[in-house]
């Protein structure tokens, strides 16, 4: 059976790149191509997979494919027409909603998503330092910071026993060949 394979999302790129005439121009070092790739990386597929950049959607049932094919072509046209990056991205948001942006915007309510991890980190660090401070304050003050080696179990039979046991065991260990 001869199967005509429906080309997957990369068709978008090829189409867009063909429109830009970039296949022949070579991808690296061409400022227009680089700008195109940079902008494509800021956009992503709006199909339910939600995982991929616009150019990479690997979802078999990508529901937004036809729409996005057109979008990639539009992107290539816009890149060529010389619109500013911001204007191009804005046009995409208007068409697909804020979901199309690969990273949440850094203004409005979405700013919260960027700030919260660092707020949590700050609060956590503060709590950590507070706990450390509290524990240090709890430390029994009787123990000097640098105590001299104590004489073996001064008047404490339990300590003497422990010291003897440990000394014997560790001594044995060192002697054993």
């Amino acid at each position: 059976m001869q199967v005509r394979f429906a080309s997957r999302p990369l068709r978008r790129i090829s189409l867009a790149l063909a429109l830009l005439g970039l296949f022949t121009a070579g991808l690296r070092g061409d400022p227009v191509a680089e700008r195109y790739h940079r902008l494509a990386a800021k956009l992503r597929c709006v199909c339910p997979c939600h995982q991929s950049m616009l150019s990479e959607c690997s979802n078999m049932q990508c529901s937004a494919r036809a729409q996005l094919d057109a979008a990639m072509v539009k992107l290539s046209q816009k890149v060529r027409s010389g619109d500013s990056d911001e204007l191009i991205l804005q046009a995409f948001v208007q068409e697909f909603g804020p979901e199309v942006l690969a990273a949440p915007p850094t203004h409005g309510f979405s700013l919260v998503v960027w700030i919260m991890p660092w707020v949590a980190a700050g609060l956590g660090l503060w709590a950590l330092l507070a706990v450390l401070h509290y524990w240090r304050a709890q430390r029994p003050s009787a123990e000097p910071a640098t105590a001299p080696a104590a004489p073996a179990g001064d008047g404490d039979p339990a300590l003497a026993r422990v010291q003897a046991e440990i000394a014997r065991e560790l001594g044995d260990w060192e002697r054993r060949e």
């Binding site: 800021k42 992503r44 939600h50 804020p98 979901e99």
Partner: peptide
């Protein structure tokens, strides 16, 4: 409205 949070965000953080 759903704001997407993807690789760019997670990588950066």
């Amino acid at each position: 409205q759903k704001i997407s949070v993807g690789r760019v965000f997670f990588d950066r953080i």
